[in-house]
C-alpha cells in the first residue's frame, strides 16, 4: 500500500506563546516547534498500516526551513520518505490554499490512503483535509478513532457526540483524519534517528492559490468575573441556583 501522511509543524501549545508585533500570528521564532499532536497519531497509524499490510509511508508537509525537523522526526519514527513543500508563508495560508497545495502532492504520489490529523493545534479549523478530499473527489472520515484495512476497504470507528461510536466502511483511496488517542505513538529510537539520515527528503514547490480567509487579529479575550449573591433560605437559594444553571448558564438539563 502506498500511504501518504500529511503533517503540520506547529508551535508547541504547551510552551509560552508570544504574539507577533502585528498581532496576526504567534511569533514563531520564540516558540519551540513540534509535530501537530493529531498528526503524531496519524504517523503512528500509517506505520501500523504498513507493518500489517506492507507498502511504503511517505510523509509530507508544507513549511519553511524549520519544517525539515518535523519530517526528520517522522522519518526517524519509521516513514520511508518525505516530501517538503517549500512555502515560507505557510502559516498565513487558509485551509483552501493548503488543500490545493496538498492536492498537488497527492497527484504526485497517487496514494492508496491518505492519513492526517483531524485538526491542527494552532489554527484548529479542522477543515483542510476535508477540503482536500473534496478536491480529489474521494471519500473522507473525520475524528477517526479506529482504523482497519480489509479487502481494499477501510473500516473505521468515528467518535460521535454523547460518547457514541459510529462504525462505517469506506472505499479507498480515502482521506482518513484521525483523532488523538487512536493509538499510542512510538518514540523515535536512536536506531531510527540514525537511519533517518539516509532517507530522502524531496523538496518541491507547488502552485498556491490566494487566501480566501484572512486573520485580522489574535488576542486574549478579557476575562471578567461576575459574582452574584443569592438571597434567601437554603431551599430558595438551591432552587434559584438550579434554575439559573438550567436556563441562564445551560450547564444542566
Amino acid at each position: 500500500m502506498k500511504i501518504l501522511v500529511f503533517i503540520k509543524q506547529v508551535g508547541d501549545v504547551e510552551a509560552r506563546i508570544v504574539l507577533r508585533e502585528d498581532k496576526k500570528w504567534i511569533n514563531l521564532n520564540e516558540v519551540p516547534m513540534k509535530i501537530n499532536e493529531n498528526d503524531q497519531f496519524a504517523i503512528e497509524e500509517a506505520l501500523r498500516i504498513k507493518e500489517k499490510h506492507g507498502g511504503e509511508v511517505t510523509v509530507a508537509t508544507i513549511g519553511g526551513n524549520k519544517a525539515t525537523d518535523a519530517l526528520r522526526k517522522a522519518l526517524a519514527l519509521g516513514a520511508d520518505k518525505a516530501i517538503h513543500v517549500e512555502d515560507n508563508e505557510w502559516y498565513i495560508r487558509d485551509s483552501y490554499a493548503l488543500a490545493k497545495s496538498m492536492e498537488q502532492v497527492v497527484n504526485r504520489i497517487e496514494p492508496d490512503i491518505i492519513v492526517t490529523g483531524s485538526q491542527s493545534s494552532d489554527l484548529g479549523w479542522g477543515t483542510t483535509a476535508t477540503i482536500l478530499a473534496s478536491l480529489l473527489d474521494i471519500p473522507h472520515a473525520w475524528l477517526v478513532i479506529g482504523l482497519q484495512i480489509e479487502n481494499g476497504k477501510a473500516f473505521i470507528d468515528r467518535e460521535m457526540e454523547a460518547g457514541m461510536i459510529e462504525k462505517s466502511e469506506i472505499s479507498l483511496p480515502a482521506v482518513i483524519e484521525v483523532q488523538a488517542g487512536i493509538n499510542t505513538p512510538r518514540y523515535a529510537s536512536l536506531r531510527g534517528i540514525m537511519q533517518a539520515k539516509k532517507k530522502p527528503i524531496e523538496k518541491i514547490s507547488v502552485t498556491i492559490p490566494d487566501n480566501r480567509v484572512e486573520i485580522l487579529k489574535i488576542f486574549e479575550p478579557k476575562t471578567t468575573t461576575q459574582v452574584e449573591f443569592l438571597e434567601g433560605d437554603p431551599e430558595t437559594v438551591a432552587k434559584t441556583l438550579i434554575e439559573k444553571l438550567r436556563k441562564e448558564e445551560r450547564v444542566i438539563e
Binding site: 525537523d69 518514540y187 523515535a188
Partner: peptide, 14 residues
C-alpha cells in the same frame, strides 16, 4: 546538529 536535537527531544518526550 538537527540529529542531536532529535535525539534529545525523543528522550525528553520519553
Amino acid at each position: 546538529t538537527a540529529e542531536e536535537r532529535l535525539i534529545r527531544d525523543s528522550v525528553r518526550e520519553f
